[in-house]
Structure formats: structure tokens, C-alpha cells
Design a protein around this nucleic acid. Structure first.
Lengths: 116, 116
DNA sequence: GCATTAATTAAATAATAATTGTATTATTGC
DNA sequence: GCAATAATACAATTATTATTTAATTAATGC
């Protein structure tokens, strides 16, 4: 992942509303949710919801599929994994010893060789 | 990490300028850098730099130490680890099979049991 | 003490982002 | 075809962020 992509993804997640949408769709899993369901679940009016869904989709954090007159949205977990990888590299770059092999709350990666 | 903290951290990283600052300070390591050095390295004028450093510090992504009339900033890698842990949980919540045990570019966590 | 340097604060402006209301597009079922 | 529904596009407004200039605070060295 490059810096520009990372910035766009961060922007997408840097909003309580969009973070709620994303987390809801992660929970919804492979089935995903249609716009009306998301709106009802989170109490967001349609136009505003469209605005945020567009942002998340343009950032590729969401994937959309048309089903008749419904739009079904799903979370793009692959991109989330890429983001985690990017942060891990950022976090470790040049200084892996600061990032690993110590008491960490992350519960992630501690036992692995850091990325180059 | 809670949702509010995560949002604040994402906001901090959702700016090319701030992402540059953070990455520079990760590279700088334990020694950190003083404001003038950061400004010269990235070509950011002092007042604007102060603005972004304040945002990053309030988000706790940076830690600052006064040294005479200099302010030395360092990256807070512990918080970055917490963020990675949060994203990992988000990413896996309820659907670990989508997040792990498959071809992943992340190179991270794949061999581990996902978080609850 | 005074001039110099480092950095921040404060105030004004410019630029973006979020929200709301209205209108439009497209699909469904009759 | 027509009414009803799902969702988005557009336009206007509001709110938030980013940037710049000028002024201030605080530490250093003479």
C-alpha cells in the first residue's frame, strides 16, 4: 500500500459515522447489508448515508453489488489486511526492536519476524 | 482501544502532512527530532507544523519532551500497536475465517489464532 | 539586561467536509 | 403504463480543518 492510498483509507475511517458503517458491515459478514438496513440500524438519513457510503466505496473499504433496486454493501477485509500490513511496516520501519519483542497489548505479530 | 480513540487516531493520520511527520519520526527512532528539524526535512512552515504536531500529540501518536528551548518529538509506537490490534479485532470480529487462513498480503498474524 | 533563536498562540482567511432538503433515476408489482 | 419503493445526484447550508501572518512566550549566550 502506498502513502496516498493509506491517507484515503484513514480519511474514510476518520469519522464516527463511517467507522460505525464499516464495523456494522464487518459484523454482517459475507451477506452484507443493503442501504436501507444500514440506515435503519444506525439512524442515518438516506442522503447522508449515500454520501458516506460513496466515500467508503471510493476508498475501496466497501464493495457494492446491485440487486434489483437494492444496493448491497460488504466490507473489504482484504484492504483492511493491507492497511494493517502498512501500519506494521510503518511502525517497525528501521526500528523493529521497538515494535516487537516486548510487552504489547496488540496480541499480534509479537512472535513473528518483523517485515523488512 | 475504544471507538472514540480510534477515530481520533485515524483523523490524525488522515492527512498527508501528518502522515509524513509520523513516518519521519518513526524513522528517527528513539532519538526523535526537534521541531526545526522536522520543518526543514518536510518543508512545513513553523506555525502550520505546530498545528499538526499539536493534533498528533493530542492523539498521543507523538510524545514531546522539552529540552531547553527545543521541543523533541518522538513517535509513540505503543499506540500504533494498539491501533493495529484494534483493526485486527475489527477486521476479524465474528468472521475470523475471512480475515485469516487465506492468501494475504499482510504477512501478519496469518499463522496465529485470531483475537476474540 | 538585551538581542537572538525556538516554538507556540491568536486571529483571519481559505479550503474541505458533513448535513439537509429537493429532485431525479431506476426497479418492482400491480 | 403507473404508483410505490430504493437509492443516488444535485444544490444550498452549516460546520470543521488547514494555512497564513502577526504577535507572544520562553530559553540561551553575550
Amino acid at each position: 500500500m502506498d502513502k496516498i492510498t493509506a491517507t484515503i483509507v484513514f480519511e474514510s475511517l476518520a469519522s464516527g459515522v463511517r467507522l460505525d458503517i464499516f464495523r456494522l458491515l464487518v459484523k454482517a459478514g459475507e451477506e452484507g447489508l443493503v442501504v436501507g438496513e444500514i440506515g435503519r440500524a444506525l439512524g442515518i438519513p438516506p442522503t447522508n448515508l449515500s454520501f458516506h457510503l460513496k466515500a467508503l466505496t471510493q476508498a475501496r473499504l466497501l464493495v457494492v453489488e446491485q440487486q434489483g433496486r437494492f444496493q448491497r454493501y460488504r466490507a473489504n477485509l482484504a484492504l483492511m489486511r493491507e492497511l494493517i500490513a502498512y501500519l506494521t511496516e510503518e511502525c517497525c520501519s528501521g526500528h523493529p526492536e521497538q515494535c516487537f519483542d516486548q510487552d504489547s497489548e496488540s496480541g499480534c505479530c509479537d512472535t513473528q519476524t518483523p517485515l523488512s
